[in-house]
Design a protein around this nucleic acid. Structure first.
Lengths: 137, 137
DNA sequence: CGGGATCCGGATGGATACTG
DNA sequence: CAGTATCCATCCGGATCCCG
């Protein structure tokens, strides 16, 4: 650990930026939907793929919440039939590193489906950096 | 965006490492409790400070869940009175960059309580890197 | 007194059916 | 296709109690 807490540190965590971030992301499906958007998904029905337990109601609520927070933007393509697309705003795109570190956490812990050796893990991370548009530092 | 999705990409997101990470962190208070631990908190009552809406039951459930996932470890210090301390495991500590990027997201979006100029934001991030034990890269 | 467990009402989530 | 309406299940939050 970097340092210990001391009694005269001001430790009012209610102002911590991590809390603020969680206001945006604490809804159960938010992160996965944002991840989907980085992977190129834009449509209501696409977000439901691979998420059998995500209902219309909850997805609808979640999209509205993310839109109200300025993370995503809705664009109506056609009325009949209804075609709507959702995009990440610049602010939404700035979540790329959060998504990346979540992926890296799992990849490095090797609690993925299959075992990955060091070079495979590196490759997997590189794939994510490309998709998430993260520069190698 | 780094690249677009194509129809013959295999896009089964159910295996995505981000999903796996969310199994650990999706509970409403998990991230904030882990953040608290990085800040040096170890006790049941400390986790409740600054979280007036966190009930005993939910905190208790959350700590058990994190322990079952290998993120934290419980240590009994004394029986009478009962004194218990909770610590991050190595695996838990490897969440430091996730926490960091959540903080950076808020700091850079300037949706913090107060407005921060560039140098103040840098300073704030540095504080987090020290607490989270992240090397400047 | 600290670390819980229990109980219960309200909020949130999930499955299905239906509509513009 | 993208939602809404409805109904039920599950989870959360607040109060209270328990136990060493």
């Amino acid at each position: 650990m970097g340092r210990e807490i001391s009694s005269n540190d001001k430790c009012d965590m209610s102002l911590c930026p991590v809390n603020k971030a969680m206001e945006y992301l604490s809804k159960k499906w938010s992160i996965e939907i944002i991840r989907d958007m980085f992977f190129g998904k834009t449509r209501f029905s696409q977000f439901k793929e691979d998420k059998p337990k995500l209902s219309n109601k909850v997805l609808s609520d979640c999209l509205k919440h993310l839109e109200s927070k300025g993370i995503i933007k809705k664009r109506i393509i056609s009325d009949t039939p209804t075609v709507t697309e959702y995009y990440l705003t610049e602010r939404g795109k700035s979540l790329n590193k959060v998504i990346y570190e979540l992926a890296v956490f799992t990849i490095d812990c090797n609690d993925n489906e299959e075992y990955l050796d060091e070079s495979a893990r590196m490759e997997r991370k590189k794939e994510f950096r490309e998709i998430l548009d993260i520069d190698i530092e």
